[in-house]
């Protein structure tokens, strides 16, 4: 029934997609392992493996510090927004009250609106709060996108929990707080992991605020550090080092994604398909 070309073409397409997806990152790894003039030769498998790029980004630049900054900002952002979002998601997902749909819609639209639209207002606010060039300022400003997004996804997950479990707890005389902490939180663990991971990736990758609200190279996060990495002369970009830095920050992400594939896909679809 199906044409004889079906299987071969399927495999051909899969191969093509795979190569296109993986090659750029592979090329970054290959380039990061080359130094000097080797970098400018096209070799798909490096002849010699040089780790000097990796050593230099940690020695000549505060790249280790930048990674710590990113970890601090991402972990801080994720913890605070999960904490707030779980309680908000309970209200939005489990209780019927007037104005709920409107609230949900505004929270969704906040996650949609352009970051640049609040840039000058946020800049003023951060200076007023004395958080300029401070990692706490980044955690604070990252709430604008992680909080609405985590609230939205957790609300979707919250709605999926069976109604009778909550009613059983109400009959048992549990308070709202007890229901949240003793019943829903344990049941939501997988959703929390998923949501936290997505928020972590979003915070880890953020660029605009990090670029705008930090000055010193000591307080930069990883994306800004990579974007602003310069070499010996102003006109020559240190491609080898940039690639090494890229590999260093991306590998952990890719490992995370590979481990949590299933959860990530379910989180993405919970956030969007049901939107």
């Amino acid at each position: 029934m199906r044409s004889k070309l079906y299987k071969p073409s399927l495999y051909f397409f899969s191969f093509l997609i795979m190569v296109v997806c993986v090659f750029p990152f592979y090329w970054a790894i290959v380039s990061s392992l080359k130094t000097g003039s080797d970098l400018f030769k096209v070799e798909f498998i490096p002849n010699t493996i040089a780790l000097s790029n990796f050593i230099e980004i940690f020695k000549e630049q505060p790249f280790g510090r930048n990674i710590l900054n990113s970890v601090f900002v991402a972990v801080g952002t994720v913890s605070i927004s999960l904490l707030l979002a779980v309680s908000a998601a309970y209200a939005l997902g489990r209780v019927r009250f007037r104005g709920r749909s409107a609230l949900l819609l505004s929270i969704l639209s906040i996650s949609m609106f352009p970051q640049v639209a609040i840039l000058s207002g946020m800049f003023e606010l951060i200076r007023t709060l004395n958080l300029y060039d401070n990692l706490l300022g980044l955690v604070f400003s990252y709430m604008t996108f992680t909080l609405p997004f985590t609230t939205w996804i957790l609300t979707t997950f919250m709605k999926q929990l069976p109604r009778e479990i909550e009613e059983a707890a109400i009959m048992d005389g549990a308070s709202t707080f007890t229901i949240c902490t003793k019943i829903f939180l344990p049941l939501l663990w997988p959703a929390l992991v998923t949501t936290g991971l997505l928020a972590f990736i979003a915070a880890w990758n953020e660029f605009l605020y990090a670029l705008t609200f930090t000055v010193e190279s000591q307080s930069r996060t990883v994306p800004v550090a990579i974007a602003l990495m310069t070499g010996a002369s102003e006109f020559e970009l240190p491609w080898g080092k940039i690639m090494a830095a890229s590999v260093v920050v991306t590998l952990p992400l890719i490992v995370l994604v590979l481990i949590f594939q299933r959860q990530i896909v379910s989180g993405l679809t919970a956030g969007a398909v049901k939107g």
């Binding site: 069976p162 009778e164 479990i165 009613e167 059983a168 707890a169 109400i170 009959m171 048992d172 005389g173 019943i183 344990p186 049941l187």
Partner: peptide, 19 residues
């Protein structure tokens, strides 16, 4: 509220706390 009525309920799906 339910807890103050002195009633207890057995649900259709049992509604046991799974964890």
């Amino acid at each position: 509220p339910p807890a103050k009525r002195g009633v207890a309920m057995v649900f259709q799906s049992y509604a046991l706390y799974p964890h």
